[in-house]
């Protein structure tokens, strides 16, 4: 029987208490990858892409007489319509979706830390199901299963397509907000719960007066991150016939005789307005993220 020398004949191991190297793990609430990516784009890049997009139009101009200036003029004529009818509507959809998703998500998130096992279990699975379903599938289900009007006590309330789109999109948003809430509450040191208990705070008081006020600050960056993701995702409702910016762009191209030269300028313009809207949000998110990261 030979002697075991740790580090020589065997793996270096010790049963003595040692101080392990400190590896800081990012808090559950700091996943703002999308905003990080968006904010890292220099602001002039999409404008350059947009300018470059006109180049193929220029190249085509010789062959069929539709020039760069004509393409610009055409787009110029449609800009008020696309912005006022199309993009404003997109913004309204995204704001309402976020509002609905946040309200539902907060309740679902609190449900996930409930002391009632059944409520906890239900909230967990609802969150998991809606977080991991494709958005388009959820949209289709909501669009097809909801009636176009609801008859209540002889009063018929119309349910337009965009309301269904708001409901459909708010489901995945709700599930993700639920995770943000759960993660934020979990990220507050558990000693605070114990300290509050020792000061005779009830569970409700502890949650609403001590824990949640601290969470709000931590939840703002990921919440804004989800708003940017949601806004970028709203054009998928155009597949279901909602008259938002992408659908109206298609109709504008149709009204201009479907000239293929207009495809890139028009869709490029849509890209640009989404960027102009979401970029400041992403920068602000990153700024808040950095500001709050130091505390606690």
């Amino acid at each position: 029987m030979s002697r075991v020398i740790p580090g020589l004949t065997a793996v270096s191991k010790s049963d003595l208490p040692v101080l392990l190297p400190f590896k800081p793990t990012p808090a559950a609430t700091t996943r703002v990858n999308f905003s990080q990516w968006l904010a890292s784009i220099p602001f002039w890049v999409p404008f350059m892409i947009f300018a470059a997009a006109f180049w193929p139009v220029h190249a085509f101009a010789q062959s069929n007489g539709f020039s760069l200036t004509q393409a610009f003029e055409t787009l110029w004529r449609w800009i008020p319509f696309l912005l006022l009818h199309g993009f404003v509507f997109t913004v309204i959809i995204s704001v309402l979706t976020m509002l609905l998703g946040t309200i539902l998500g907060v309740f679902l998130g609190l449900g996930q830390i409930s002391r009632n096992r059944f409520v906890r279990w239900c909230s967990y699975w609802i969150t998991q199901i809606f977080r991991n379903s494709p958005w388009l599938v959820l949209l289709f289900i909501v669009m097809l299963s909801f009636p176009f009007q609801i008859d209540l006590f002889g009063l018929s309330i119309p349910v337009p397509d965009w309301t269904k789109a708001v409901i459909g999109l708010s489901l995945p948003v709700m599930a993700n907000i639920s995770e943000i809430v759960r993660g934020a509450i979990g990220s507050v040191p558990s000693a605070q719960w114990e300290a509050a208990e020792s000061l005779a705070f009830s569970r409700r008081q502890t949650l609403f007066e001590i824990i949640l006020p601290q969470c709000i600050k931590r939840m703002i960056p990921p919440w804004m991150n989800w708003y940017a993701i949601l806004t970028m995702a709203t054009p998928i409702v155009s597949i279901l016939g909602v008259e938002e910016v992408l659908n109206l762009t298609r109709q504008a191209i149709e009204a201009e005789n479907n000239r293929p030269e207009l495809l890139i300028p028009f869709y490029g313009f849509v890209l640009l307005i989404f960027f102009v809207y979401c970029y400041p949000i992403a920068r602000l998110t990153m700024w808040l993220e950095r500001k709050y990261a130091v505390k606690l």
Binding site: F81, E254, A255, N258
Partner: peptide, 14 residues
């Protein structure tokens, strides 16, 4: 239709 010129389409003012 809103996407079938000239049967049904949008003018510039929508």
């Amino acid at each position: 239709k809103a996407d079938y010129k000239p049967w049904g389409y949008r003018s510039t003012d929508g």
